[in-house]
Simulated scan of single mutants.
Amino acid sequence: MGSSVQRLAGVGFALVAGPALVLLLGPGDGVTLSNCAACAISAIGLAGSRRQVRLARMLPLIGAAACTVPVGAWTAARVPAPALLVGIGLLVSAAALLVLRGVRASGLRGVRGALAAGAVSGFMNSAAGVGGPAVSLYAVNAGWSAREFVPNAQVYGVAVNLFSLAAKGAPHLAVPVWSATAAGIVLGAGVGRLLAERVAERRARTVVLALALAGGLATLGKGLRGL
Rank of each mutant, 00 (worst) to 15 (best):
V92W: 13
V150W: 07
L98T: 10
L100M: 14
G110V: 02
K168H: 12
F163P: 05
L90N: 00
Q154R: 13
A94Q: 02
P151A: 13
V155F: 00
A167R: 10
L108C: 10
R104N: 07
V155H: 00
W144G: 08
A159V: 09
G102I: 11
V120M: 10
V155Q: 06
L84I: 05
R101S: 08
G143L: 14
L85S: 09
A83H: 07
A114H: 00
G122N: 02
A105Q: 10
R147V: 14
A159I: 06
L98A: 15
N152Q: 04
P70W: 07
A166L: 15
A170C: 12
P70N: 10
A166Q: 15
L108R: 01
A170Q: 09
G131A: 12
V103G: 01
P80V: 11
S126C: 08
A116I: 11
A128I: 05
L115D: 02
G122Y: 01
S106A: 15
R112G: 15
M124T: 12
V130L: 07
R112D: 05
G110Y: 03
Q154C: 06
V140C: 07
L98H: 02
V158D: 05
L97V: 15
L162E: 05
G110P: 04
V160S: 03
W144I: 14
L97P: 01
L98P: 07
A166E: 14
P133K: 01
S145R: 11
F149N: 04
R104H: 12
V155M: 12
G102H: 07
V135N: 01
E148H: 14
V92I: 14
L85H: 13
L162N: 06
V158A: 04
V160W: 15
A153K: 15
L85A: 11
F163N: 11
A114F: 02
V120D: 03
S136M: 08
A128N: 04
A134C: 01
P80D: 10
A170F: 15
L85N: 09
Y138G: 00
V79D: 09
R112H: 12
G89Y: 00
V140D: 13
G131Y: 02
I88S: 01
M124P: 02
L108D: 03
L85D: 08
A81T: 14
K168W: 14
S93L: 11
G169S: 10
G118D: 03
G169M: 09
L85I: 00
V71G: 04
G102D: 10
L100V: 10
V120T: 09
P171K: 00
R109G: 09
W144R: 10
V103T: 03
L85K: 10
E148N: 06
V135G: 03
A116Q: 12
I88H: 06
A95T: 09
P82T: 12
N161L: 06
N161P: 05
